[in-house]
Design a protein around this nucleic acid. Structure first.
Length: 273
DNA sequence: GTCCATGTTCTTTA
DNA sequence: CTAAAGAACATGGA
């Protein structure tokens, strides 16, 4: 559910509400969402002010006043919600963070995740990325080309590799490839220079547009205020199999690549270059 | 009951 | 050794 645009939208909705807030305490309802599991998370964040919230790839990074950080990854179904402490707890709520009341507010930050592919990672005072690739919005075509030429995997699969480019997921890879007119089964190292530069700019264009639409809500995704995104309404290929391509009217096809559903237009995204 | 799902990581195979 | 394919994780909805 959450790729770069969704995660950015969560950060944007969270930041104005809790940057500067001081954490009173936290309760961990399921401790196995924590990594490392024995990091004394609640004890370490109690009493600390949140001085910044940012996004790195699909991670939501919280920076504390003492220099320590932790990040939340939403996995497939995770949500970070700001809810009043009087609101009923949702099923699958795994962590609750309380703040010192400002202006009489009693808001809580709650992490909810049915499938539990997401979680919370304690980073300590290191800002280490642990092998994450460059941010797509700051990546050059030369950088992308350099990474792609080192693998003969399908371009679809390569773009999902977070060590190669960090933040894309299944939706935005399909949308970007359609935008760039590249077939998902082309080998990454076979792309020509002009295709790589078109791909890089299409990735940026699709992501920027999706952020303006506050992400795609297919099922569970909402921002911290519970608002849905609406980029799904303007998807050109994702989940549109059988429907006419919005460019050429050819029926969109759905295949499986690397175990992931993959949507493309057989006409606009011709397999030969 | 079946299949599928916006993600990542570990294991198996080539 | 590396690269790539496949399975696994857990839950819910169609």
């Amino acid at each position: 559910m959450p790729e770069l645009p969704e995660v950015q939208t969560v950060v944007n909705s969270l930041a104005p509400r809790i940057v500067g807030a001081v954490i009173r305490g936290a309760s961990l309802i399921r401790s196995d969402i924590l990594t490392p599991i024995d990091c004394d998370f609640c004890k370490k964040i109690a009493g600390k002010q949140i001085v910044a919230i940012s996004r790195r790839a699909k991670r939501i990074v919280f920076q504390l006043e003492d220099g320590n950080r932790f990040f939340v990854h939403l996995g497939m179904t995770g949500r970070l919600l700001l809810e009043d402490s009087s609101a009923a707890l949702r099923k699958h709520t795994h962590l609750i963070v309380d703040f010192l009341p400002a202006k009489g507010e009693t808001v809580q930050l709650r992490f909810v995740d049915p499938r539990r592919f997401g979680g919370i990672w304690w980073m300590g005072d290191s800002a280490d990325d642990h092998g994450l690739g460059p941010e797509p919005l700051e990546m050059s075509a030369a950088q992308l080309g350099g990474a792609l030429k080192r693998t003969r995997r399908f371009i679809k699969t390569a773009l999902l590799d977070q060590r190669l480019i960090a933040g894309l997921g299944n939706i935005y890879v399909d949308e970007a490839l359609h935008n760039a007119g590249i077939h998902p089964l082309v080998r990454a190292n076979h792309l020509k220079r002009d295709q790589v530069s078109r791909l890089m700019s299409c990735i940026k264009k699709v992501l920027a547009r999706a952020i303006r639409h506050k992400g795609s809500t297919l099922r569970d995704y909402v921002d911290a205020e519970g608002n849905q995104g609406d980029f799904q309404k303007v998807h050109r290929v994702y989940a549109r199999d059988g429907l006419p391509c919005l460019t050429c009217r050819t029926a969109i096809r759905k295949i499986t690549v690397g175990g992931r559903s993959t949507h493309f237009c057989p006409d606009c995204q011709s397999r030969r270059r």
